[in-house]
Structures are given as C-alpha cells and as structure tokens.
Nucleic acid binder design. Structure first.
Lengths: 229, 229
DNA sequence: GATACTAAGTGTGGCAATTACACGAAAGGC
DNA sequence: GCCTTTCGTGTAATTGCCACACTTAGTATC
C-alpha cells in the first residue's frame, strides 16, 4: 500500500452513459460485470480516475477501453456521491454522457473480453449500484438539452436527411413532430449545409443529405442566436 | 498516515458559490485565505469531503462552518478536475451554488475567525486556484436556469413585492423587463400567494407582499406546467 | 414499359402568445 | 395641502406557432 494519506479519501471514478439511436429506439451501451459485487449484472461503463489525467480524459479512456468507442460528443452530467452507493467502500463517481451514432460502432467488433451491448432505453436490464439512477439522470438531461442545444446531430452520421433528424427528435422527445413545421424551423436557422448529395440505394425518392455546420452555428451564437426545436 | 491505498487517490473537495442580491447588484460571498497557497487572496468557500458524508452534506457543512449560512437553496453545479488546478497535489472539486437573500445573512455577525465578505459580481477580486472559472460557470448556470426554474424567489426574503421580484430578474438577466407584462405573466401562472399584507415604512404607496407557493407549483409541474420568464 | 408503392418536398390561414406603451391612485414627507 | 415616489392596471399591433394535404421522384413488381 504505497499511497498513504492523513485522512481517509473516497475513491473517485467516472461513469459514462452512451446513447445511440436506432430506427425506432434510443439505446444505451452497457457492459456486463465480470466480478463481484453484482457479477453478471449490467452496468454503465466506467472506472477509476488516475491522478495524472483530467476527469474528461478518464471518461474517454474508460469508454474506449471498455467499449471501443472514441471521438464522440461527451459532456459532464452529474457527480454521484451517496455514502452507500458502493457496498465495498466510499466511491464518488463523476458521470458523463456521450452521444454517438451506433452505425459504425458495432460493439462486438471492438470489444473482446468484456461483454458489451446496446439496450433499448425503454427496456433496460437490472443495473448494478445506483446506475439506474444515473441512467435516468442522463436521459432527463438529454431530453431537456436536445431542445435548446444542437446535440441531436451527434446521434446521426456526419451526413443525414431531414427526416432522419426529425426522427431523432421524435424518439428523444417521445412525441410526433409536424414534418413541414420541423423542416421550416430547422432550415430557417441556417445551421445545416446542403451537401448536394442524395441518399443512395433507397427504394423510393432519395432525400437530400445535410451536414451540421458548426462554424456557422458558433458564429451565430456569438451574435445572440438561440437554438430551439 | 493511517489511510493507505493501493493506488494514488485525488483529494476530493466541495466548493460553494453563494449568490445574494442587493438593490442593484448580484453579489457573491467569498472568504479570504489564511494559508498558502494564495494566502491573503480570496476564494470560494469549500473544503474536504469526509468519507461518511454525502457531497451535498459536505457542501452545506463547509458553507455553514466558513460563512454561517445555512438552510439555503443549494444545487450541484459542476465537478472541476483539471490535473494542475491545485499546485500542491491533485484535487478534484465538486462545485455547488447556493442562493440566499443577503438580508439576514450579515456576514460579520456569524463569522469570527475567517474573513468573509460579499462582493459585487461585476467587480470580483482576484481569485485563488481556478475559482474564477467556477464563479463564471455558476453565474452562467444561474442566468440560464432562472428563466425556466422558479429559483429567483430564493434570492428574496420569504415575502416580497412584484417589483422586487422583477428587479431580481432584471439584475440576473441584465436587461430591463416591462412592468405590466411581467406582472401579467407571473400572476397568470398562479404560483404566488397574496399574503394580504403590504410593505411597511416606505415613503410611497405600499406594495402588496406575495409569497412563492411551492405546493401549488409542485402540483402544477406534475400536471405538465412549465415555468418560464 | 405500365402500374403501384414509398417517402420527399412544399405553402397558407387561424389562433395564441408576446410586445409595446401611459396614466390615475395611494402613501408618506415636507 | 402639496409634492414626490412607487403602485397597479388594459389594449392594440405584431409575431410566432400550429394544423393541415397534395404533387414529385425514384424503385420495385408484374
């Protein structure tokens, strides 16, 4: 035990709730625990913070180690610190949430030892520790934030159709949105760039592909623009 | 050094940004550091988290110990974890922000040893560590949240006039608000209870005193009501 | 190659919410 | 009793939001 301190210190971990979106469902990436406590049960990916890395670095590192996912939108969610949230000892966890398009993140291709899988948010498995609470908080944050921050794009591939974007909002907010009003509002903002391309290999009229123009968005925000869906 | 661990652990602290409101200014409570590093400079009140108390308990305890303030609105803000934010060793800090009416929280009456004082947010002193960053984040959160959560009341005494409430919003949001529209909107929500009393000892027509009715508000929220100013 | 299917793409009118705006009433000070 | 200060109130114009349906384009099927 080479590390000794005058006063007892809580262990510090990061946890990372990863959301992806499917045709019909919001999904969350979970890993199956190999060891006690809660061996065999599912949990949010995470692990200990090293003393020489920032919290966000730790979250990204653990995320990649445990699920193979990297280069995603990541934002701090909340820090969970109930005294008894881990039965072994005092553990404080800084939770993050990540948004990714699950196309291109085939879990089984990247994760070998650990068992990782996507679950529909509507039917999560029983979770270890206080992870159900963390998941709930992450979903609440996503629902709340998606309406006034342009993060819905993070759940889609780089280029997407307006219908796909609308589906993202419908799924996250769990309500139907009028097609014409949605397109009008989003296009009027001027934060989407028409790529000039259209969908390929679809059995119907191909839709235009758009890209989120972060440069323009940032510039507009500085001039007082306020995103809202 | 009775506490030893297999791996190095960051120290874990809480910091607490306390806002109060004045006739004309948003103010923040700071304490003057007695010891190095940054001795003599000002800092946000805070301290170490004990292993047997929750994060929020720690924040409330430190707040009372260092400033005498208790029973206030308190909410977690963000966790700051840059590797070099403390020159001595790795310290991760869970920041909270608190809202209070500074009438009735006369600093000097409660704090003896430590030097604590209110500062106008527009003219803060030079701050220790990364506390300027924390303060900025807290102010941003307050500005953002005050518009869609009924937390403006927390900066006022229990009973207040509509003009006082309007001033709170004007000061926090830093813009003028139309008096008639403001009153119309707030009263239409039905979350204020007219106490029947009026101001005393004012050299002009006395205004009605209202109280925020949290019961009614909570009930309305469950029915889908959405506060917005 | 004609027909059927699927999703893309587009405009208007009604209603609700937001904004701008000014003056008489009440209270205490002098 | 007159002055000063703040309280408290309504309306009209504008804007933003929402509901709503048909034509076009591309593939697949027969």
């Amino acid at each position: 035990m080479p590390f000794a301190y005058e006063f007892a210190r809580p262990a510090l971990t990061v946890d990372c709730v990863v959301f992806g979106i499917d045709e019909d469902d919001l999904r969350v990436m979970l890993i199956q625990r190999g060891i006690e406590p809660f061996a065999g049960m599912w949990a949010i990916p995470g692990g200990f913070v090293r003393v020489d890395e920032s919290l966000e670095d730790a979250a990204r590192r653990e995320l990649e180690e445990e699920t193979g996912i990297r280069d995603v939108f990541l934002e701090q969610l909340f820090t969970f610190g109930r005294v008894d949230r881990d039965p072994r000892e005092r553990v404080v966890s800084v939770a993050y949430y990540a948004l990714t398009n699950l196309i291109g993140h085939d879990v089984h291709a990247r994760t070998d030892a650990t068992n990782a899988a996507w679950f529909a948010l509507s039917e999560p498995p029983e979770l270890s520790f206080d992870h159900a609470e963390i998941l709930e908080a992450a979903y609440a944050r996503l629902r709340g934030k998606v309406r006034y921050q342009p993060i819905g794009f993070e759940l889609l591939p780089d280029r997407f159709t307006l219908t796909q974007l609308q589906r993202v909002y419908e799924i996250v907010l769990d309500r139907e949105i009028d097609k014409r009003n949605f397109r009008k509002k989003i296009l009027a903002m001027g934060i989407l760039k028409d790529t000039g391309d259209v969908q390929k290999d679809v059995a119907h009229r191909a839709a235009r592909l758009y890209r989120f123009d972060k440069r323009v968005y940032d510039r507009m925000v500085r001039k007082g623009f306020h995103f809202e869906v």
